[in-house]
Nucleic acid binder design. Sequence first.
DNA 1: CGCGGCTTTGATGTTCATCAAGTAAAGTGG
DNA 2: CCACTTTACTTGATGAACATCAAAGCCGCG
Lengths: 231, 231
Amino acid sequence: MAKRNDINNCATCIYRSFLFSNLKAEDLSRVNISKKEIAYDPGEIIVQQGEKISSFMYLREGLLKISREIDNQRNQIINIAHPMDFIGLLSVFSEDYYHYSITAIEFSSLCFIDLGLMKDIIRKDGGFALKLLEKMSSMNEMILHNRLLISQKNLRGRIAHILQFFSKEIYHTHEFTLPVTRKEIAELIDMRTENVVRILSEFRRDGIIQIAGKVIQVLDEDNLSRIEEFG
Amino acid sequence: MAKRNDINNCATCIYRSFLFSNLKAEDLSRVNISKKEIAYDPGEIIVQQGEKISSFMYLREGLLKISREIDNQRNQIINIAHPMDFIGLLSVFSEDYYHYSITAIEFSSLCFIDLGLMKDIIRKDGGFALKLLEKMSSMNEMILHNRLLISQKNLRGRIAHILQFFSKEIYHTHEFTLPVTRKEIAELIDMRTENVVRILSEFRRDGIIQIAGKVIQVLDEDNLSRIEEFG
DNA sequence: CGCGGCTTTGATGTTCATCAAGTAAAGTGG
DNA sequence: CCACTTTACTTGATGAACATCAAAGCCGCG
């Protein structure tokens, strides 16, 4: 793990999530004392697949990719995590070792909370446990739902989907800078790099988007939506 | 919901799961009083997509399919649930309404526990909540993992995978009766009915399996494993 | 300045969906 | 119980969608 700069107090942290707002004052203080805040630059690996799980992680700021190795040199990206996500909620409570890697794809700031402490709080505070169950349930449902959607779409539909994802869910604007390479897009939506490029070019030819390297501008969102839906 | 026959007491129920064995005696008794046990024949619908979630379900015996409608007349099967599974753990705690349907594909017996009661127990018993978190986490991880695997395999690999699934994880024997139609297999592993048939026939020609209607016998498991892995 | 990874386009072949058409099996009503 | 209808299964032929191979330009970085 990298640079440390514990600057914030959980009680006043503007990033404090809905979940932690349900914590009792005493427990919040325990979290505050134990937590470690770490910042990562794009490309930095936060968790290596196979590593032992010892922390409960909370993404304050930035963007991460959660991925896993399939064979020698092929990767599969499971999810892109936004702020307020409890990353690794995927399996913190079921597995001893991470089944996936976590990498920063933008400048990111994470809080690490000792897993033992979290479990202790859960055991003592059933109300908090229920909130956590709900959060976990909805995160898992979302990721699975996404996978099920993608597997039904053709390649154009998938590209449209991922463009809408970045435009609407991540950056909330029509013009944005892709935080991932073409290859990573391919790994995220089950296709080949060449076809990502090809279809992006096609969309540009058709006046649906504008491309300047990693900067994308959505010009015809209606059309993009139609392609996403029917593709 | 269908026929009722509340015959069992949770305290002595031989199907009582690992999870419920962590329940305090008092809470177990509350579950026992509230629970409804219902039996279903193959084909009977247990939950309709869109229905309100009001129960926590536990599969005592049988086999279920969990599926969702994509468009007018196309379905996608998300998972096959075995006994001891807390079905709907997928989203009981995050959503008010089911995002999927549940159908019996063999004679099945389920216990329904009032969701309010479950939430109450969770709030009071953090230890139980933690066990539930672990169970939920591992179930979700398994389902997602399966999806990620399938999406990387070619059609032969997927068929090999699903045959191994039924043979090893469900029936624990080389010869078994498929609980699903060819069409349902297709819906489960993202392919078309025709290709399910074609590849099964191909496997038969190659001496890997024997087919008699719905009865399948795995003859060459090594080969099947190889196809699963490299396909 | 040169190396390696990223991007791009074209050409080619494979895999898979689709269409078609027929058989078998299973449910339905008289 | 039999004619009838529907649903499941099966095989072949065809074309579309996609992966793969190849080659060249680009860009950042040491």
